[in-house]
């Protein structure tokens, strides 16, 4: 693949969210927000984006935080993946987030890529899947004020900025898992990714969230039929296997150069089953987990 030179653009360096919004409103034409650049720079080098104006967000420090308020956890849009994964505000049993250290790119990528950037790039990214499995939401601000949207298939209109991702600690007896199947260790987009979050009380599943990267075509989605089949039940490996077979057989993932639809479907079944088994066994047996 031939790379092009970085296109010429004007760069703006705001130091607050307010400044970002006012720069946006003062400019015509395409404006691109530059957070970690781990997607944007390769896109520019491949000629997919040719911005005339780039707003460097690295000075907007007010959007770098992971903080807990009650049982809500707020993650600022410019928090790096490394800072999210290692934050003491993340519940210890939320392995989906803490394991970002293992399966999200390399140390360099994690130091640069941001939570907001991962959410904004849409598509089959890790953070939208994890947030969706935890019923998380995303707060966006624009010229018309604030709005809160779901983490899946998120698209920003001109002038909008991701402020934060918000999710709830589901409390005692909850766990969150993430699995990825890909060709080159962690440094690539997964062929199949799955996020499973679960809460069980007194040996019964109270709440569950299951997300797959390709449910229909290239669209990431929750498997609500599978969730409904397991809520309120005491589950075991054979129930998990049957429910996964039933539900995941219905997905229609798109084929591409990395894997065929049927292969993706097979791996999807394996990953979702593993996730459910992990969560159930963690919650009911309190097994030790290799971190």
């Amino acid at each position: 693949m031939w790379l092009k030179a970085v296109p010429s653009f004007e760069v703006y360096t705001p130091s607050s969210l307010r400044e970002v919004l006012s720069i946006y409103s003062s400019l015509d034409g395409e404006v691109v927000l530059y957070a970690g650049g781990t997607d944007l720079m390769p896109f520019m080098r491949r000629g997919k984006i040719r911005p005339r104006a780039v707003v460097d967000l690295s000075g907007v420090r007010e959007l770098r935080y992971v903080r807990r308020e009650g049982d809500l956890i707020h993650v600022g849009g410019l928090t790096t993946v490394h800072d999210l994964a290692t934050s003491p505000a993340i519940p210890l049993s939320y392995f989906s987030i803490r394991w970002l250290r293992k399966y999200f790119g390399a140390e360099t990528t994690r130091h640069m890529a941001t939570v907001g950037g991962n959410l904004a790039s849409g598509g089959e990214r890790d953070i939208p899947a994890i947030m969706a499995s935890l019923d998380g939401e995303v707060k966006i601000v624009g010229a018309d004020g604030e709005k809160v949207v779901g983490p899946l298939g998120l698209t920003l209109s001109r002038g909008e900025v991701i402020v934060e991702a918000i999710f709830r600690d589901w409390g005692p007896g909850s766990v969150s898992w993430f699995g990825k199947f890909e060709k080159r260790a962690s440094n690539g987009i997964g062929v199949v990714t799955a996020a499973v979050s679960m809460k069980a009380v007194d040996g019964v599943v109270e709440k569950i969230g299951v997300v797959l990267n390709r449910v229909e075509g290239r669209t990431m989605g929750r498997l609500t039929d599978l969730e409904n089949a397991l809520v309120g039940k005491t589950i075991d490996p054979s129930l998990i296997k049957a429910a996964v077979e039933e539900s995941v057989s219905r997905i229609r993932p798109a084929s591409d150069f990395r894997a065929s639809s049927s292969f993706r479907k097979h791996v999807s079944k394996v990953l979702v089953r593993r996730g459910l088994e992990f969560c159930w066994s963690y919650l009911t047996r309190g097994g030790s987990v290799e971190d």
Partner: peptide
Amino acid sequence: GTGDCGSCNVIVDGKLINSCMMLAVQAR
């Protein structure tokens, strides 16, 4: 040139990064 190989790795404020994906202005 796209953050895969690490040949351009440098340390910025104690963090290892790919200098091919950071804008120079971000080092201010």
